[in-house]
């Protein structure tokens, strides 16, 4: 039996809900508790808006108001179709936890003392991070095995932000390195030991939005594969060396335009 706690960015995150639902369906995996970050934090909104600009508003509208309905490309699996497949009935993590008698805590920051206390009491083997800012050492040290995160980039090469765009921009004649990576979190950004990776195939007519949409259910599945692998113990994480990859940041609109033209022209 492996005991798992979940950190979620907001109460109605479909990514977190699908992860929780699928984890609960696995044999010998027990979801012991959930920590949800409240969306009502002006200081955080201000700092994220400074970094992401209108992209943040788009993200909030899409995730919070439309629950992923606003971005649908083709007939591929999305978080929404995945939630139907796995028979998810609840709209929020609060409903989901209440229906299963699982303790849930709302915090303004995952690193705050009551979050730490709550997680220490749960004593999970593993914490699954499904979003919600940086995680500090006080939380990283709680679970026996560590804190798992699925990064929407190919590690160790592409750490940080906008990594699909960066991979596209840097791709010369070769194929861009687009993929997802399940890794343990450490104090750096996407620098912890890698557990599993999966390449994401690019298709004709792809956009950055369609690639991201395709990635999300894949990321949920990779988390489940990783947790089951840790439960059964065949998986070993491979440490990253600092020089194996680079840290990327939010891409400037002019570089984004170059990356977009590359994807439109099939690289």
């Amino acid at each position: 039996m492996i005991k798992v706690a979940i950190l979620a960015p907001i109460g109605n995150s479909l990514y977190s809900l699908n992860t929780a639902q699928l984890l609960a369906q696995q044999k010998d995996v027990q979801v012991t508790g959930i920590v949800v970050r409240t969306p009502w934090n002006l200081a955080r909104f201000h700092s994220e808006f400074q970094r992401d600009g209108m992209r943040l508003i788009r993200k909030i509208l899409n995730k919070w108001l439309f629950r992923g309905k606003s971005l649908t490309f083709g007939s591929e699996e999305t978080l929404l179709s995945q939630s139907e497949e796995i028979n998810l009935k609840e709209k929020t993590l609060f409903e989901w936890a209440m229906n299963r008698d699982i303790p849930i805590l709302t915090v303004s920051d995952h690193n705050q003392p009551d979050s730490q206390l709550f997680l220490e009491k749960l004593a999970p083997d593993l914490i699954i991070f499904t979003g919600g800012g940086l995680i500090r050492a006080n939380i990283l040290g709680i679970p026996r095995l560590g804190v798992l995160n699925c990064h929407s980039g190919w590690l160790p090469e592409y750490r940080g932000m906008d990594v699909i765009e960066w991979a596209m921009l840097e791709a010369g004649q070769s194929k861009p390195e687009v993929g997802i990576s399940l890794h343990f979190m450490d104090r750096g950004v996407d620098t912890g030991p890698i557990l599993l990776r999966q390449k994401v195939e690019l298709k004709k007519g792809d956009t950055f939005e369609s690639i991201r949409q395709r990635m999300q259910p894949m990321m949920v599945n990779l988390i489940i594969k990783g947790v089951c692998g840790l439960r059964d113990r065949p998986l070993k994480a491979k440490p990253q060396r600092p020089g194996d990859g680079k840290q990327y940041y939010v891409m400037h609109p002019r570089l984004q335009a170059v990356a977009r033209s590359k994807i439109n022209n099939g690289i």
Binding site: W166, E170, K246, Y248, Y249, H252, R254
Partner: peptide, 14 residues
């Protein structure tokens, strides 16, 4: 040949 630095320069100049 590292566009990350040009990226930062573009932002600073903006």
């Amino acid at each position: 040949k590292d566009p990350r630095f040009l990226n930062a320069a573009l932002k600073l100049n903006d």
